[in-house]
Design a protein around this nucleic acid. Sequence first.
DNA 1: ACCCAGGGTCATA
DNA 2: TATGACCATGGG
Length: 219
Amino acid sequence: MTFLSVYKSLFKHYGPQYWWPGETPFEVMIGAVLTQNTAWSNVEKAIVNLKQAKSLTAEKIAAMSAADLGQLIRPAGYFNVKAKRLQNFCSWFLGQGGEKVLNNFDDIELRNGLLSVNGVGPETADDMLLYAFNRPVFVIDAYTRRIFLRLGLVAGDEGYENLRHQFESQLSSEIKLRDELVNIYNEYHALIVLHAKEVCRKQPRCSECCLRSQCPAAE
DNA sequence: ACCCAGGGTCATA
DNA sequence: TATGACCATGGG
C-alpha cells in the first residue's frame, strides 16, 4: 500500500475537486490565513465582507486600521489575531514587490519568506504555495494525520516537516513531471479534507468507505 | 449545552 | 523539545 494507491482510490471515488475555492491567487492567500482552525463556511462570510467593502487587496488591508479589518473578518473567528496576521502578511507581500515578484522566487526561497511572516505557519504557507503559487508542496493538516494513522501508513507523532517529506519523497519518486505532481498534491489534499469531513464524520462506517480494502481498521 | 472547525504564537519548565 | 493557554465565531 502506497500514498499513490490511496490517492487513486479517493480520486476514483470522489472525482476531481478543482481547489482552492477562490477567484484569484491573492484571495486564496487571504483565505489560507482566515481558515486557520476555522470552518470554511465562516471564512466565506468574512471574504464576502471584504469584497463588499472593496477591501480585498493587499494595499487596503495593510492600510486600514486593525479594528476596522477585525470587524470585516469577524465571522471567521479569532478576528483580532487574524486581523493582525493579515496585515503582517500584506505588508510583507507588498514589501517584496507583490505577486509578480514573488512568482519569480524559487520554491525554497518563497516558502522561507512566507514562514518569516508572524502568523503564517507551515500549513498556511503550504496552502499558499500549492494553491496560490502552484508549487509542488504537500499540505499536511489534522485530517491527513488522522486518516493515515488509521491506515497504518504513518506513526502519527512525526513533526510537520517529517510527515511532509514522507509524502513528497514517495510521490515525487513515482511522478516525474512537475505539473502533474502539483496537480496530484492539489487534488490529494482536497480529497483528504472531503473524505474526512463528508464521510468519516457524518458516516463513520468502514463498510461504506472507499478506502476499506486498504484500511487495517476496517472490518 | 456542548463540541469542533482545512493553526499559530507565546510563555513556561 | 514539549506541553499548555490563548485566540472567537457559527453550525451540528
